[in-house]
Structure formats: structure tokens, C-alpha cells
Simulated scan of single mutants.
Amino acid sequence: MDSATSTEWTFAAGMIPERSSGREPENTSRNVLCLLNATESDGCAEVMIFHEDREPVGPYRISLPAKRVRHVRINDLIDPQAVPYGVPYGLAITSDVRVAAQLVYVDTADGRFAVTALPGTPGR
């Protein structure tokens, strides 16, 4: 499991679609950060959001219960600042336990679900 886990992850290509179709929240276009903590210890991750034309924002703190997966909508990261829709971003994750990380893109703009899942780039 160690080769698939790390305490640092980066994702260079994120963007929450501006448009959605259907009922909220299930049909809202979104990006979802998926973190798997397969360890015996509870942990915490800190997420920093990076933009093309402004300073980084964060950290956003995410609790990581032991032997659990967390799916966190980037759309829901609002403190210290909401992540804007339709604006490219990158993110960096640092956690105090080794986790596996993936970013899922869900676009419902045209009335159908387009879903893409991308693994992150591990640090150490």
C-alpha cells in the first residue's frame, strides 16, 4: 500500500464547471477530492488552492478518520475563502498520515453526467 500513498499530493488541473443541470445538490457540477486513510490512525489533511493570477488560499482542513475514505466537494471549501467556479486552480495536500488521493470531475452542464477521475502526483 505504501507505493500508492503519500503525505503530500498535488493536482495541477482543477476547475469547477460554472453550469449545472438538474436538482441540487446531486446534479451540481463539481470537483470532488477523494482521500483514503487506510492507516490505523486518525489524521488531518491541509489543502492549499493555487490560482493563475492571485495568491494561494488556505489551508482548508479535512479530518481523516482511520480506515475510512473522505469525499470532499471542492465546491464546499468555503473557509477561509470559497473556491470560484469556472476558474482554473491547482491544489496541494499535506497530511499527517499516508493517504491515497484522487480528484474527480463531475460536469452536468449539458444534462448528462460527464465524470473523470485523476490520480494526484505524490510528494514523498
Rank of each mutant, 00 (worst) to 15 (best):
N37F: 07
T94E: 08
I78V: 13
R124A: 09
R23Q: 14
D79Y: 10
V83N: 10
A117K: 07
E24M: 06
R124I: 00
T116V: 13
D53I: 00
S3N: 08
F113W: 13
T108L: 01
P122M: 09
A117T: 15
C44E: 15
M15P: 03
P88R: 09
A45L: 07
A117L: 07
K67D: 14
T7I: 11
T28W: 01
A100G: 14
K67M: 03
R61L: 11
D42C: 02
K67S: 12
A45D: 04
Q102W: 08
V99G: 02
A92H: 09
D110R: 15
V97W: 12
P59Q: 04
P122L: 10
C34F: 00
V104T: 13
T121Y: 02
G90D: 05
D110T: 14
M48N: 03
G123L: 05
A13E: 15
T10Y: 00
V104Q: 11
E40N: 14
A109R: 15
E52R: 09
Y105V: 00
M48Q: 13
F113V: 12
Q81V: 03
G86Q: 08
H71R: 15
V106R: 13
E18S: 08
F50T: 10
E52I: 02
V57T: 15
A92F: 03
I62R: 06
N27F: 01
F11V: 02
L36A: 11
G43E: 07
V115T: 11
V104E: 10
P65C: 11
V57D: 02
D42Y: 04
L33K: 04
V106M: 12
T28A: 12
T7M: 04
V97L: 08
A38E: 13
V97Q: 03
I74H: 05
L35P: 06
C34Y: 01
E46R: 12
I16M: 07
T108G: 03
P17C: 10
D110Y: 10
V69I: 15
G111K: 09
T39R: 05
F50E: 08
D2Q: 09
S20N: 09
T94Y: 07
D96Q: 04
G90T: 10
G86S: 05
S6M: 04
G123V: 14
P119Y: 10
D110G: 04
T116K: 03
T10K: 13
D2L: 12
G43N: 06
V32S: 12
R23H: 06
A12G: 12
P88F: 02
N37M: 01
Q102G: 10
L36W: 11
I93A: 02
S41P: 01
L33A: 06
P25E: 09
V115H: 03
A92R: 14
A13H: 06
